[in-house]
Design a protein around this nucleic acid. Structure first.
Lengths: 192, 192
DNA sequence: CGCCAGGTTGAAGCGCTTCAACGTCTGTGG
DNA sequence: CCACAGACGTTGAAGCGCTTCAACCTGGCG
């Protein structure tokens, strides 16, 4: 539990008593590669902190996958909309590698929120962080063309980009795998 | 202050004492049409609750405006990324009509967060709400084509759509004014 | 009235998609 | 050890939708 504790410490310093309040609600879960953390139709019961491995969120629409988010170690992940509203999810969250997550249950979290200001603060800061990430995503989609989005992505998150197959990255960028292949070829001619 | 109080009540019930703690930090400000609530380069000092009127957030990029958000009465608005990180803004927020907002200052808000769990809860719920809005925006941009995005928008927010000039709506949808005009014409032929 | 902002229309061009074919690498079973 | 299959990536050709640019229309306002 060291890893997740360091994560919380990075948000706000936490007393031993507060930590002891929190820990009993954690449930460590293993998800083998290609298995799902959540699927459309179900109400998401947990938020998941990623200890190891990598996952992707995607929509299935008109028979094709659209990846909307990739997440790796040391961050929280969920269909947060479904979790917050306790309404059915509309996306898949799938392990791209063997994954270990630490789950925190919706009702446990609501109780923690009532008990101590620190848990409200954690919840607020995590939501704020997610907001900032999404906000950058929107501005990238609005302001950049596909080629610029590609270089923006590999510049801002190079090690993550390495772990993503090209055809998944393509739909994340809002283009087809063929187009991404051609974008990469164009750059190769320039870079030599 | 009735209007903003009802907004907070809708998030969580609030005692008279808590309300009295909050109110002194509010500052009501009028912004005439076409004036700015915030501009690129400055660190956003306040979050603004809209009492009346309508504003738009836009980026200026390659000499052209890209509207990323429209907001009207009874919601909070700011360049939230700049506000949260206290780093320079990169967007304009402009009054599309004469506007009245109620501002809450960054440092006042941080102090409120320390004083009472209810203010953390407000902050959390507002961030969560903003997250859900943005999340829908991302999925619309990823999954729908321009024509579908247009109908999605006027379906989900018809009264707001009425107040937005077409050339501003176009960049919000990620297309040119000419394209939006042609999309509308296409539909007219079908609808009669 | 005449101007200007906002909206429409047409023609040409470009970039991404589509579809089909092929290449390459990896793992699996005969 | 080779053969084969399947997943992933690349390439080409054709098509479509959006952009670009220019012209024009319309209504509101000084």
């Amino acid at each position: 539990m060291d890893q997740i504790r360091r994560y919380y410490e990075s948000l706000s310093s936490i007393t031993e008593a507060q930590w002891n309040e929190l820990v009993p609600h954690f449930k460590r879960v293993n998800i083998p590669k290609n298995q799902f953390l959540s699927e459309p139709g179900q109400v998401v019961k947990d938020v998941s902190f990623i200890e190891s491995g990598m996952l992707r969120c995607y929509y299935l629409f008109d028979g094709r996958e659209s990846n909307c988010y990739f997440a790796a170690e040391n961050c929280y992940l969920a269909d947060y909309t479904s979790f917050l509203t306790q309404s059915p999810s509309v996306m898949y969250i799938e392990a791209m590698e063997d994954v270990t997550v630490i789950n925190l249950d919706y009702h446990a979290l609501q109780n923690l929120y009532k008990k101590d200001i620190i848990f409200q603060e954690f919840g607020r800061k995590i939501a704020e962080w997610l907001y900032i990430k999404l906000s950058n995503r929107v501005s990238d989609l609005l302001l950049l063309n596909p080629e610029e989005r590609y270089y923006q992505f590999i510049k801002s998150d190079p090690e993550l980009a390495q772990r993503i197959p090209q055809y998944m990255l393509a739909s994340y960028l809002g283009i087809t795998p063929e187009s991404l292949s051609r974008i990469r070829r164009r750059q190769m001619r320039v870079a030599g």
